[in-house]
Amino acid sequence: MMENSPIENDAVRRFSVFHRFLHIFVMISFTFLAVTGFSLSFSDQGWAGLVVSLLGGAESAAGFHRFCAALFYLVVVSHLIWLGYFKVVLKGRWTGSHTMIPNATDWENILQNFRYIFGKGEPPLFNRFSYLEKIDYWAVLLGMQSMGVTGLLMWHPEAFSAVLPGYAINIANEFHFHEAILAVGYIGVVHMTATHLTPEAFPLEKSIFNGRIARRRLKAEHPGEWKDRYAPTAPSEGTTDPADAAS
């Protein structure tokens, strides 16, 4: 059967080393941000006291939270710098079907996916990034801005209360906490199930860590990207593709 032929199981490159590193940094700092932040939000629970004492007390837990936040924001900044490099040096395009920019196809894909969910159609044909992957990306990029602002407000209430009303700090606190719940709730369930808990990837989706994805999976899950990369050369199953060679 073709699905299990060795060539179809061959891996092709999906993520560059740089992006894999950024993902690991985000993953680690996000986890520690959540753990340290929620140990303050739920400080009356036993586990929170344990976490904080393991980190050496409330002050160092707070310091660690801010360190992780800075690390996280550094990832955002390095990504933005990379976007500039991609455009200027690599002469890449910021818009188009292979980018994170939402477009009309995504909307069609959402509708198609619901048709598929309710048994009224075939699964949508995604491009390089599915709409859920785009939401993952924008949730981090935009969410990090608001988490950053509300976090800074609570970090330096003295300075900000000179220009903002006092209750702005309280509102920042509400927003920061709610958005943290949203972020952890989203990443913990939606992102995790969409990547690891699909029959194709279970039990572990490794492509964001090793950068590789099996040919047959790329073809099935990102047919748009497959077509962009391989259709012009009318792929015979055995050819080495330039993306593989480049890495």
Partner: peptide, 10 residues
């Protein structure tokens, strides 16, 4: 260094 509105924090 508390600013003028600092005491308005609830």
């Amino acid at each position: 260094d508390a600013g003028k509105n600092f005491a308005d924090i609830v």
